[in-house]
């Protein structure tokens, strides 16, 4: 039976294609948050004073620490990729585990922030919240919605990195085949970039 084999088969290995696919996916994530940034900008413009007042409830110190934590986790992922490219599998794994630890730290701090607010009754439906002005309510809704969605992305990114660690250990990701690690890194950096914008927009309105 005549069988013609394509050189450009869709079933060939193609790292550049995987990377391009990942970037395209990141674009969709970016615009997902983009829609929220749009809502944020409009409502902040319409309620400038209320947004300022509401932002005073947020804890700048905690936000700054979390920014530093996330930036550092981005560093460790980037270093992990470099280590893998150089063939240092052990270093690469350790840097990924470090990244996971930073991710957990970020979520723990976030948890304390949220629970402090909710402890003060500052959540939609609670009594302190109900007494706020409409503009402040919008601020808090956006705060919970955007940081919540971001937190969800931190968790997904963490799981992604966990999977990569497993695949490195089983030899499926290795110095001559590490596109999955690179893509996990790309995803993690995007989570970082979104936080880079969320931080000044919510914490630093002064």
């Amino acid at each position: 039976m005549a069988e013609y084999l394509m050189v450009n088969s869709g079933h060939n290995r193609d790292d550049q294609a995987s990377k391009l696919g990942m970037w395209l996916f990141l674009f969709t994530e970016l615009l997902l948050f983009g829609g929220l940034f749009l809502v944020y900008s409009v409502y902040r413009y319409m309620n400038q004073e209320a947004f300022l007042q509401a932002s005073l409830h947020l804890n700048i110190a905690m936000g700054t620490v979390n920014t530093a934590v996330l930036l550092t986790s981005s560093l460790t992922v980037a270093m992990s990729v470099s280590a893998m490219q150089k063939g240092n599998i052990k270093v690469s794994i350790n840097l990924l585990i470090l990244t996971l630890l930073f991710a957990c730290t970020f979520l723990v701090i976030k948890y304390f922030e949220w629970s402090a607010k909710i402890g003060h009754g500052l959540f939609p439906g609670m009594e302190h919240y109900n007494m706020l002005e409409p503009g402040e309510k919008l601020f808090f809704f956006l705060y919970y919605f955007m940081t919540g969605l971001h937190g969800l992305h931190v968790i997904i990114g963490g799981i992604f990195i966990g999977i990569v660690i497993r695949k490195i250990k089983t030899g499926k990701v290795r110095p001559d085949r590490y596109i999955l690690l690179e893509n996990a890194g790309l995803y993690w950096h995007l989570v970082d970039i979104i936080w880079i914008f969320l931080f000044p927009l919510f914490y630093l309105i002064h």
Binding site: L24, E29, L31, F33, L36, P124, F145
Partner: peptide, 22 residues
């Protein structure tokens, strides 16, 4: 790729709005 995420997030806001009515 570039337009669909915007409707995605908008529709999520409608759901959130129906659930907690902000």
């Amino acid at each position: 790729v570039l337009a669909t995420p915007i409707i995605g997030i908008t529709l999520l806001m409608i759901i959130a709005e129906r659930v907690i009515g902000i």
